[in-house]
Design a binder for these strands. Structure first.
Lengths: 214, 214
DNA sequence: TAAAAATACGAGCGGTCGCTCGTAATATCA
DNA sequence: TGATATTACGAGCGACCGCTCGTATTTTTA
């Protein structure tokens, strides 16, 4: 083993040209659009290829199938979210007022979600099919870990089990509120965002202060 | 017009026999199962018919198409929810402590959702396709009206706009938390349900007390 | 009991799906 | 400049989709 232990999928180390990378980007752009407008199940690979100005054959030279497209798209979303708004996930600021912490974490995420509707739609799609659930898991796990770490820094007195419960509840609350946030007009957004933060603040103020000494 | 103003769909007043009603029930049972395991988009009408022990032709003698199956199923869910747990939506108890009100409203709904997984799955399905969204709207609207009425009785001082916002936020919060509630084992359910109520209580305690005089 | 209506069947139609493959054009390598 | 690998195409395959229709059976009506 020269570089890494061989993986089962046995990628033959295909050399990607510059225009190949570009094509993949175009195909993912098209996939984001088609997934967003038709949902995962009804999105057709031929439609994705056509939306990217490519043929089906070209699409399948870069992706093994529909699931892999969704996985690559999710990976790109996560990558861009972290690149653009990584500060939202920083663990510092453990002494910030809770409202300020929520602003710092949620504002970038709200902005990203509204700028990338496909991200929310793909995440919100109930992964009845195992394939889609598999494609979403890494993103979900990563967001959960980020939040858990922030809570751990902020509320070190909280048992890990309850901390994870709070993180799960907070994430699901936010996911539940996202449709309201996505549907809001630019004018309504501030009020809706404020109310969402209000809800999260109200819950976390209680949940994170449990088991505190003194 | 003898009984009602004629509707555009012009139903020829087909006379339904007892076994016809029974068949429709069996078909809806099968539809609930297939929708729950495959999602709306990937659920095939042939599979629904087969699961009900019927032929495709029989299915289409009772339903005009896939969308109408979903609509009828949602209608039956709502009907059963109200029949079995109508007390949850009663407007009285405006002076109950908030936690007791939440218990009275949420416990029956949680029990119903867990007993009827298809209900949640169909409601949670992001209605990217207009047809499914159409099928879900009546149920969503009805639940919203119920909650709005409860809030109006409980917090008459609250402006209608803010009351509706609070109802929308509460509904979306609960919908977001439902996956946790559905996935919980019987052992974990009490803790998860308590935490969900905690979150709703924390938010509503603030939201419903806004604008209160003195 | 005969006519009419409701229920039941299932082969199969037209269409779309995910995906393949033979072939050609283009870029990199030797 | 050849040789080789990568990118590109698009007709079309087999499977499945929602749904139809001719026909047979059972129940209600008259």
């Amino acid at each position: 083993m020269t570089e890494a232990t061989a993986d089962d999928t046995a990628k033959p180390a295909r050399k990607r040209q510059a225009r190949g990378e570009k094509r993949m980007g175009e195909l993912l752009d098209a996939a984001a659009e088609v997934f967003a407008t038709h949902g995962y199940a009804k999105a057709s690979t031929n439609a994705i290829a056509a939306a990217a100005g490519a043929s089906p054959g070209t699409l399948y030279q870069f992706f093994r199938g529909k699931q892999e497209i969704a996985e690559a798209l999710m990976a790109r979303y996560v990558e861009r979210l972290e690149a653009a708004h990584g500060a939202a996930f920083a663990v510092d600021g453990a002494d910030l007022p809770l409202r300020d912490l929520l602003d710092r974490v949620l504002d970038p995420i709200i902005a990203f979600d509204r700028a990338n509707p496909g991200f929310h739609i793909l995440l919100a799609d109930p992964g009845i099919t195992p394939e889609l659930a598999q494609a979403k898991r890494p993103a979900q796990e990563l967001i959960f870990q980020h939040l858990d770490r922030i809570f751990a820094a902020r509320a070190p007195h909280l048992p890990a089990a309850e901390r994870r419960l709070a993180a799960g509840v907070a994430i699901h609350m936010f996911r539940g509120l996202l449709p309201l946030i996505m549907a809001a007009s630019d004018d309504d957004l501030p009020a809706v965002a404020r109310e969402a933060k209000q809800a999260l603040h109200a819950y976390l103020a209680v949940a994170l202060e449990q088991h505190r000494s003194t």
